[in-house]
Write a protein that binds this DNA or RNA. Structure first.
Lengths: 110, 110
DNA sequence: CGTGTAAGGAATTCTGACACG
DNA sequence: CGTGTAAGGAATTCTGACACG
């Protein structure tokens, strides 16, 4: 896993990095917009990726969006990405199948 | 500045990431092997780069090196890098000077 | 709905010191 | 020299609640 995804930053630092209050950051978690991990003691840990997402959320909030709308946009984006992944896997399968077919045919010709 | 250099990780997390005790991590700072930043309240903040350096230090300590030896190796490495930087800058200057000379000569020939 | 705040408690971190080998 | 540990205090974070609009 790359550094950008590693959950290692505590909420105070995230607050400084994003300019958001800790209250806001916790609230966006309550609304299922971000998903920090926890230490054994219960302290939240965020990744740089989370920080980026929070900045994005902050921008959308400024645009007057509500948390549930941002949540929806997020889910839609994930659905698109999942579809794209499937399309690529399908492409690989097709390519492999085609290649396999070609070699089968070659065998038959000899 | 890239994420890897940003000082955002507290000592507890660094301890988990490196497997070193907090005591060890603080001691290596005392011996000038790492240089965390501080929050306004005085809490140490480390970067992923620091984490990597700590793992490297841990390996060297296992090899029986003493902190001052590791410190020396570090300084030597920095000196080499500085030299290399200078060499590259000199190279760029030479190239620019040569190019300038060529165009000067071209002007003279016409 | 989204955010500030005061409250009380728990987890985290800090420093300086003593101990051991 | 390098590290563990107990001590006391300060900074940080946590939750649940009340407030406002």
């Amino acid at each position: 896993m790359s550094y950008i995804e590693k959950k290692v930053i505590t909420i105070g630092i995230v607050s400084e990095l994003t300019g958001l209050s800790e209250r806001q950051i916790r609230y966006y978690e309550e609304r299922q917009l971000i998903f920090p991990e926890r230490t054994a003691g219960g302290t939240r840990k965020y990744s740089f990726s989370d920080v980026e997402k929070l900045v994005d959320i902050a921008n959308k909030m400024e645009d007057g969006l509500q948390t549930f709308e941002i949540r929806k946009m997020e889910k839609k984006k994930e659905a698109l990405e999942s579809k794209e992944r499937n399309r690529m896997i399908q492409g690989q399968l097709n390519a492999a199948f085609y290649k396999n077919n070609q070699s089968q045919r070659g065998n038959r010709l000899r």
